[in-house]
């Protein structure tokens, strides 16, 4: 989340709560609403590293709020993030480890493991279909995020099918 907050601050200075709202608005319900404490902890770390700076702004009838802005060092880190290619998801699948290793010990049957996992993936897929229907159609980032999750899950289902063909 560090770099996400940094990117938002490079656009305009903001305080913690505004950052939380911005993330929710841009990515919709597909994005787990970040907890405000988590945001302040992250901002604290960014500040310690010199990537953002916070200034206290006085408010009438309320405690001061701290508005953060992106520093030149922060901008450099952000440029580096944007300019470098992003790693694809790696196959480091916990289920696959279970599938290969558990039968060796005789405590599980591969066919049963795969069948249960398929039903579980389908339940997640159904939730994603629901989520897409509940999410504003015009919010393209939110819809694309959900679509991406569906495509990844479909790949997992296809892989599961290959495992069933080869390992059972």
């Amino acid at each position: 989340m560090r770099l996400h907050l940094l990117a938002l601050l490079a656009k305009e200075p903001a305080h913690g709560y505004e950052l939380k709202q911005a993330l929710e608005q841009i990515f919709g319900t597909a994005y787990p609403s970040p907890n405000i404490g988590q945001i302040y902890v992250t901002l604290g770390r960014l500040e310690k590293d010199g990537l953002v700076s916070g200034v206290d702004v006085e408010q009438s009838n309320r405690p001061n709020k701290k508005v953060y802005y992106c520093t030149a060092a922060g901008r450099e880190v952000l440029d580096e993030w944007v300019d470098s290619p992003t790693e694809g998801p790696r196959v480091r699948d916990e289920f696959f480890m279970k599938l290969v290793l558990a039968p060796l010990t005789g405590i599980a049957d591969r066919m049963a493991l795969i069948n249960r996992q398929r039903r579980h993936y389908l339940a997640i897929m159904r939730d994603l279909v629901d989520l897409a229907q509940r999410t504003d159609h015009d919010n393209r980032p939110a819809q694309l995020l959900i679509e991406g999750a569906m495509l990844h899950l479909q790949a997992d289902l296809d892989w599961l099918e290959r495992c069933q063909e080869e390992l059972t």
């Binding site: 990515f27 319900t29 994005y31 609403s33 970040p34 988590q38 989520l131 991406g148």
Partner: peptide, 12 residues
């Protein structure tokens, strides 16, 4: 919880 998805994984 709260109906929000866990489509993306957040790391701080």
């Amino acid at each position: 919880r709260g109906g929000a998805g866990d489509v993306v994984e957040l790391r701080s």
